[in-house]
Design a protein around this nucleic acid. Structure first.
Lengths: 205, 205, 205, 205
DNA sequence: TATGAATGAGTTTTCATTCAT
DNA sequence: TATGAATGAAAACTCATTCAT
């Protein structure tokens, strides 16, 4: 490899790394203040630069959230698909999906918060139609799992799976709003608590 | 009662009614599109008037949400306080609070959504410090109830009450995002499903 | 006609009049400074208001030129079509088209200048594709007329009609750059001079 | 001549050549898109470099047009002065000036277009006052020639020389907008067509 | 010589708010 | 009570220019 090639490789890599840094900063700010009310200036300041400078790296404020969300969703579905492909029973699949979700929150808390809080607003634009697609796929995944679990005797009969699905959808993700990585509880521990609660209830037996 | 007094009384009443109508419309729009991204013009249009006309009725966009939220919170705490004052056991109190919450969603869905989605943003302003107060009071209410329930053997030992509290807080209110009054399920029926799930878990026994 | 209907009619008319005034002002400024380098603020100032106020009347800077140009082109083609439909001989048609053009300059000088100077830039946007359409139609009109005139013996044989067409196209319209309505020469007088020059040449005979 | 001197000489020459290349590129882009709306980045890209790199060669975007235009005007006036100094009759002078103009278009089409399209905008800055000077000199040159020609019986009496001057000024240069070097017609052939048209008119005789 | 990252002034646009009618 | 025109502050975005490497 010539020096030239190593150079161009390293600058391309440096550039990608800088982008990633900036996106992480942007995600943090969007998550904590809300996408719509966050100004580009605020993101830039958090990154230690002036407002206009961000436009050297990104086309628009919109393209920043876009990149944040699509990267997150890609990774999320890869994780879910791995679980779904592993042939587990309905209870174990359930547990694995919830655990995966908490791991996503652990690793991509800002992206999860943005996904949770801003989807409604963003998905009015065609550019973000993939958010609706993802939601629909999510819905089908859980409904199928719940139906299967009821049929095979894992889950309680008489529950409204539509209600339970909505319950799960919201419940798991809103935890991103308060979970802090490195806090008292690990993501796996929280997943365990949630699973106990959901699977067995909170009543003493 | 003189004609004059009846007139001014009916005018004052008509005025209050008009305000209430406009607030209901505003709440609907704020809830469905998000407070920050909703323009005053959109609210006005939904009410069949022009942007400037709203300022005859209200001081500002902010005072509209303010009125919406404080009216809602007042009613909500009145309901909660009634439950808390009735001397029920921890399980029954739990059930009653959850049921009350779903009734709030049923009757004040837009206000609940606004409370849920916009509190973080609004409470950065001193004017809305009461939102933080309400949250803190909510937190204490549930933590005390959970602690009491664990002590008297109603709730499972070994659960992290901090986690459970957050779980309950989020879980109940997010239902406002999908619940439709007059839909397939009544508020009480949904409360029953939620309670089964939370108290007994979803596993078949 | 009720008072209400007359009112709404008069306000609609007042509004249309205001728009027309503002468009005339904008056209003046765009014409004298160039569309691209004119700021919305400059247009607003020329109209005695602040920058943002223009957006009460117009969607965007672009929509202002759009309206200016399309109104002008509509009127221009109406005038040309009247000439073309009147069954004149080729020499008289030629004279009438040139005279019409100078009348357009007389009445819509700013619009003509914008059309002349900014078409190249504007027509890169799909919104202004009608500028290209108009140019193409203009080209066909003149080429047909020149060809007919050569065939019927009106025009000199041996001229390159492509060159003459371009010559006419540019020559007539650039006069908008210097012609001032109410100056020493009337539009008809200038048209006469141009026609003498073009038809008979400037050499003494 | 030492190696050192030859090196620095060839370096200086190479540098001048690079500048000339870059200016030619810049002129092309400015001409085709318009100076004001062309970004430095676009010029740089057309020259195969990045935006900032141009600033090694030039002080500013403005200094680029400045150099392009002043070089062009210098050459143009040298050519005109040669004609004017050669003691030709008014008709021959007329023909020679028009022919020279088309040769300028042939050899410096981008510069001519910039001169034609951007003078109004540029000449608002003191730096480009020479554009106004040139225009004034141009005007005097033609008016004197026309007056002389009318006096000596070459040109038709009764024409408004002010109108004819403007006509000539615009007519000749706008050809830069469509002329392509190496196309169907040579510059001299186009000059011949223009001259026939202007001198003898387009009517058959 | 050229790059790439950043600057900062300026531009278009949005929108809560005001106010005369 | 409501309208409609305007205000003005703030937002997203653009781009000529700088400068360390």
């Amino acid at each position: 490899m010539s020096a030239r090639r190593r150079d161009s490789a390293s600058t391309a890599a440096a550039r990608a790394e800088r982008r990633a840094e900036l996106l992480a900063t942007a995600a943090e700010v969007f998550a904590s203040r809300g996408y719509a009310v966050t100004t580009v200036r605020e993101v830039a300041e958090a990154a230690g630069m002036l407002g206009g400078s961000l436009y050297y790296h990104f086309d628009s404020k919109e393209s920043m959230v876009d990149e944040i969300l699509s990267a997150f969703l890609t990774e999320m579905w890869a994780a879910y698909d791995r679980v779904l492909a592993s042939g587990l029973g309905s209870r174990e699949t359930f547990q694995a999906l919830v655990a995966e979700s908490f791991r996503m929150i652990d690793r991509h808390r800002p992206a999860v918060m943005i996904y949770q809080n801003e989807s409604r607003y963003l998905s009015t634009s065609p550019r973000f139609s993939y958010l609706l697609d993802s939601q629909e796929r999510f819905r089908q995944m859980w409904l199928e799992l719940l139906d299967r679990g009821v049929l095979d005797g894992t889950f309680r009969v008489g529950l409204d799976t539509g209600v339970i699905y909505r319950f799960l959808r919201d419940t798991v993700w809103v935890a991103a709003g308060w979970y802090r990585s490195g806090g008292r509880l690990t993501a796996d521990e929280i997943a365990r608590q949630y699973l106990t609660m959901i699977l067995d209830g909170i009543l003493s037996t």
